[in-house]
Simulated assay, not measured.
Amino acid sequence: MAKPMTKTQLVAALADEMDSDKKTAGAALDAVVAIITREVSGGGAVTLPGVGKIYCRERPERMVRNPATGETIKKDADKVVKMTIAKALKDSVNG
């Protein structure tokens, strides 16, 4: 498995793709991340065409087991961020 792309590498690739400098590309990436974070944390969802949909889902209260002790405890309800991958991306990876 290849190593994941770092933010520095992503900014450099984005700057190259945009024919721009790294400072502008970094600002654009930070702005996109801030918008996604604000929307999803507010209960909304963001669809990135060709990539997928990022959304927040609520998980109910449930019983979980501590693997070290075997003790079962009640875990409170919480929220979790999910992502559904777009069919176009799945097809390009498998194709």
Results as ranks from 00 to 15, higher is better:
A2I: 05
K3M: 09
T6E: 04
T8L: 11
V11E: 04
A12V: 01
A13E: 12
A13F: 03
A15N: 07
A15H: 07
D16E: 14
D16N: 10
E17M: 10
M18E: 10
D19C: 08
D19M: 10
D19W: 04
S20Q: 06
K22Y: 01
K22W: 08
K23N: 09
K23A: 14
T24R: 14
T24N: 11
L29T: 02
A31P: 03
A31M: 11
V32R: 01
V33L: 15
V33Q: 11
A34T: 08
A34C: 02
I35V: 15
I36W: 03
T37V: 06
R38N: 09
V40A: 06
S41A: 11
S41G: 09
S41C: 08
A45I: 02
T47D: 12
L48A: 05
P49L: 11
G50T: 03
V51R: 06
K53A: 02
I54G: 02
Y55F: 12
C56W: 01
R57Y: 06
R57F: 02
P60D: 13
R62P: 07
R62E: 06
V64C: 11
P67H: 00
P67M: 00
A68G: 10
A68H: 09
A68M: 12
A68L: 08
G70V: 06
T72Y: 11
I73W: 15
K75A: 15
K75C: 12
K75N: 08
D78T: 14
D78G: 15
K79W: 08
V81G: 05
K82G: 07
K82E: 11
T84I: 03
A86D: 13
K87S: 13
A88R: 11
A88Q: 12
L89H: 02
L89P: 05
K90L: 13
D91N: 11
N94T: 13
